[in-house]
Design a protein around this nucleic acid. Structure first.
Lengths: 341, 341
DNA sequence: GCGCATTATCGAAGCGCTTCGACGGCAGTC
DNA sequence: GACTGCCGTCGAAGCGCTTCGATAATGCGC
């Protein structure tokens, strides 16, 4: 493999000139730069990563701490992972994947070994040991999700509170006064809670403000959970005319199936909104209007925030992304109530 | 951060002694080693990764080249990824994730920069550009899956041909003479084919040898695809008494649902086998007897094969894992035929 | 045409580690 | 008691790069 010395020789310059030509940190005559670039191409030179780390105190590697246990929703996690990798690559960064019981210790190890420049943290739990660890290490970082009470580190997330309010507002303005919610599996609620709690807070608060009746089901994982949750919800809220999903697609699919089994039409009999949807809500059995989870935006911003900290540009910041709405026609005014004799 | 010099000073020895104590490449007096270890603990010393790479020509990083496009089955891919990470960690290796349009170029880049010691390749396609690339780079590698015609590189996979034969044998010996197959979505077949082809080859060959009638459906992606495939299969093979799945769970779930809608019992009316199942076939609506895909074994062996090549222990080898069978009672003898008047 | 910036380039130090060769000390051998 | 061999340790070279300070070359004002 060619080294910088080979390039310097081939171009008839010193190695420091090559280095400066590459980094742009000092001005180089255009003609010299050209010769150097030609030599680089011919020799297929790539700088040695180890040498660069040693000398430059820069690794061009970002860790991704991802709890990818069997209890999360794999497809969603996967989308986050690939999106982070993509964002990192856009800045010539590579991603070291820390997972399976190494999301925490791996951060310490990689940082102590100066293997990484920073870390992107996903799957943030309510009390997350990675928060104090990273703070103590002084490692540039970005959290995807907002650990409660943290304001001295970069975090990015959808504004779930706002999303909850918007969901209510949208349905209430269409005329609904009784809205059911199917939330995440309760196993997530016990663990992750933070974003779920924020959504619920905004949602419930807005219901109260508008005098909307509501009830929430936290189902079991999977499609069956979705079906059961819908049935229970109907018992709890017999006059329900609108349904909000704040969960992953298997549960949505289960509930939609149950709805269609019951012969109910969307939005004729029931208005449905997919809130904070990490999946493609237009590819469901019935396409759903949605407040999408801006997954790519979150991941890209997280990477950029982390790298800004690496470059010591700016300070850590907490970013809440404003929710948006994608209309797919699954929301309408409720049917006029038929007063029974 | 503490360096090896700090440790040497604290322990009152030279840095080379510390290095040898750590690597074990020369003998060190027990008392000296103890002093060194104490110093390491007290200073929380971790060797600098860059320096190690530079001096040692060893990075302790393995690349994982994973095409994680939206067209694959995300949960399965995710399981592979976490399993590889886990296996690598067991050897104090970290994993650099190459994905999203960088599975190929990333290998070249990381290798040229001497960032990685080797690469584990997943999602192997029939003609895969990574094969010639890695061969040309002379990079230690292991393929999860067998690229056709490759015998000079380490590959590991389930013996799909054998699995196909075993599937037929098992059902034929239970008395079945007409076996339907629901295979992978045809979008996979067009792309990946190799393992699918090997399964089909073994399966069809064994059917021929045993005089078993058979037909295969390559469904659309998703649950609906599974339902449709089952219906079509019944038209194609009206006397079908056994069904083999060689696909991912959404399709299995769709087909099982259709079967239960039709009021058919398993294994009373239909014997069912989940072949090469990457999912937990015991957690389905109806638990299925299965030939499991030994995902962890594949990933762990792949990592070990790649590392063996890094250490220049042994030569590349193609490993086919013998299929096993997990009985969950979804296979029985066919009902005696009722001759219609 | 002299001094002074400015621009372009170079040499050398040093990042933290691994590894080679060397060396002192000690046990065993004849 | 001198010789051989081995064990435990050390010093120094060198991995390929970045960066600092120095130096040469150029352009400019007066």
């Amino acid at each position: 493999m060619a080294t910088i010395t080979d390039v310097a020789q081939a171009a008839g310059v010193s190695i420091s000139t090559v280095s400066y030509a590459l980094s742009g940190k000092r001005s180089i005559a255009a003609s010299t730069r050209q010769r150097i670039m030609r030599a680089i191409d011919e020799l297929e030179y790539e700088p040695n990563a180890g040498a660069r780390m040693l000398a430059g105190a820069r690794t061009n590697i970002l860790a991704l701490s991802a709890p990818l246990g069997p209890d999360g929703h794999l497809p969603t996690h996967m989308r986050f992972v690939t999106s982070v990798v993509e964002a990192a690559r856009a800045h010539d960064y590579d991603v070291l994947l820390l997972a399976t019981d190494d999301e925490v210790s791996g951060i310490r190890r990689a940082a102590s070994r100066s293997l990484i420049d920073g870390v992107v943290v996903m799957g943030v739990a309510t009390t997350d040991e990675r928060v104090p660890l990273i703070r103590r290490l002084g490692l540039p970082s970005a959290f995807i999700g907002i650990p409660p009470g943290v304001d001295d580190m970069s975090c990015i997330d959808l504004d779930f509170d706002r999303a909850g309010r918007d969901a209510v507002a949208m349905l209430a303005e269409a005329g609904h006064t009784s809205i059911g919610v199917i939330g995440h599996p309760h196993s997530y609620v016990d663990r992750d809670t933070n974003f779920i709690r924020r959504f619920t807070h905004g949602f419930d608060d807005e219901c109260r403000a508008r005098g909307v009746r509501t009830a929430t089901q936290w189902p079991e994982i999977g499609r069956t959970g979705g079906q059961q949750a819908y049935d229970l919800l109907r018992e709890q809220l017999p006059d329900m005319t609108a349904l909000v999903f704040h969960c992953n697609e298997p549960i949505v699919e289960g509930a939609l199936r149950r709805i269609s089994e019951l012969g109910l039409s969307i939005p004729g009999d029931l208005s449905v909104l997919a809130a904070c949807a990490s999946y493609a809500a237009d590819e469901l059995e019935t396409p759903l209007s949605a407040i999408p989870l801006p997954l790519d935006e979150m991941c890209h911003s997280a990477v950029e925030n982390a790298l800004a900290l690496v470059d010591a540009l700016g300070d850590p910041q907490v970013t809440l992304i404003a929710p948006t709405f994608l209309d797919r026609g699954s929301i309408a005014a409720p049917r006029p109530t038929v007063h029974q004799a």
